[in-house]
């Protein structure tokens, strides 16, 4: 029981990331009909916003303290971040400590703007081109973004710690009346899950309960008719592209303490997120979210020792590395529309 609970919890954080990226991909696909291979790169850019913010916050004035010496006998250099000298000791330190959540505020407008520019500058010209061309051009864009990040930040992962409050783990088992140390879970992963649930809920609420969202949903169903009604649907779709980019970016921001950002993290997630979208059903938002969590949890179950033992007993190789692809292949062949795909979307 506790092992199962632990695996579910373990799957949640990865599942959250899949769900958020897949949600953005589906938003873009559902509105603009564009397959965006650069979506993983947006996730990565979000993560590197944290790194940038952290570097900015840690810009320091360097002073020499002649009274103390370091181990080489030179005068001790003291680095005082500007933030500390401006806001005082405790306030400045806590700002630096909370840089990951703070990055959310910075990243949101950056990613929205980035999304607008990308849509207006590039994607707009590809509405009428075949899907293969869309894949190829966004694939090229993903390479470019990835290489730019690599040129500026290097190829090594950059550690970005969570705020100190969330660094430990807590005993989840005790909370629901189990033995101690049965289910230990890091705080930040729980935060990540809560955050992604919040983002997903707000995207859905935005689409469901606002006039803007209603128009967008109408446009997803029939773009031409909405356009004929005198609504500038292109503008709204551009905004939705920005929202999708922002969702990916924010997912990247919050993921940094779990996995130190490196330049190829976007590509790693992208392949899996596409599989998630396809399993969920192309164009179905709830399908994307559902299959994101489902595949995340399945992945962590497949890496359980018991499951591995079971496959070994049957003389089969363990499937923890390939479970997602395996599920995708089975789903695509048995339920071509995916779990919750609508009829008529991307069917040739």
């Amino acid at each position: 029981m506790d092992a199962i609970l632990l695996q579910i919890l373990n799957g949640l954080d990865k599942g959250s990331a899949y769900a958020l990226i897949a949600l953005g991909l589906t938003l873009i696909f559902g509105t603009l009909g564009v397959v965006n291979f650069a979506h993983g790169a947006l996730f990565m850019i979000g993560a590197f916003c944290v790194v940038t913010l952290q570097r900015i916050l840690n810009l320091s004035t360097v002073t020499l303290d002649p009274t103390k010496t370091d181990f080489l006998g030179n005068p001790l250099t003291i680095k005082t971040p500007y933030i500390v000298s401006w806001f005082g000791e405790s306030m400045g330190a806590s700002i630096i400590n909370w840089s990951v959540p703070l990055a959310l505020i910075v990243t949101l407008p950056i990613m929205l703007l980035f999304g607008f520019i990308m849509e207006r500058g590039l994607i707009k010209h590809f509405y009428k081109r075949p899907h293969a061309d869309q894949i190829l051009v966004t694939f090229g864009l993903a390479i470019v973004l990835q290489e730019i990040i690599k040129a500026f930040y290097g190829a090594n992962p950059i550690p970005t710690p969570a705020p100190e409050v969330f660094r430990g783990s807590f005993d989840f088992g005790v909370l629901i009346g189990m033995a101690e140390n049965a289910v230990i879970y890091p705080y930040w992963r729980l935060v990540y899950f809560a955050f992604s649930a919040l983002v997903i809920a707000s995207v859905f609420a935005f689409l469901q309960f606002t006039t803007f969202g209603m128009v967008v949903r109408a446009g997803m169903a029939d773009r031409e008719t909405v356009g004929l009604l005198g609504i500038n649907i292109d503008k709204r779709f551009t905004i939705m592209f920005g929202v999708a980019a922002a969702v990916a970016g924010l997912a990247g921001v919050m993921y940094t303490p779990i996995n130190s950002p490196n330049y190829h993290m976007g590509m790693d997630f992208l392949v899996l997120s596409f599989v998630v979208v396809v399993v969920g059903g192309m164009g179905s938002l709830s399908g994307a979210v559902l299959s994101g969590f489902m595949l995340g949890i399945l992945e962590s179950f497949a890496s359980m020792n018991e499951v591995k033992g079971f496959f070994e007993a049957l003389y089969l190789p363990s499937i923890d590395q390939i479970i997602i692809y395996l599920v995708a292949i089975i789903i695509l062949l048995t339920r071509p529309r995916g779990l919750m795909g609508r009829a008529g979307v991307m069917e040739e």
Binding site: V35, H131, A132, I135, V278, A328, L332, P336, M346, E348
Partner: peptide
């Protein structure tokens, strides 16, 4: 399958 599904498969 064809199209994007084929690519992903």
């Amino acid at each position: 399958r064809s199209g994007i599904y084929f690519s992903i498969l």
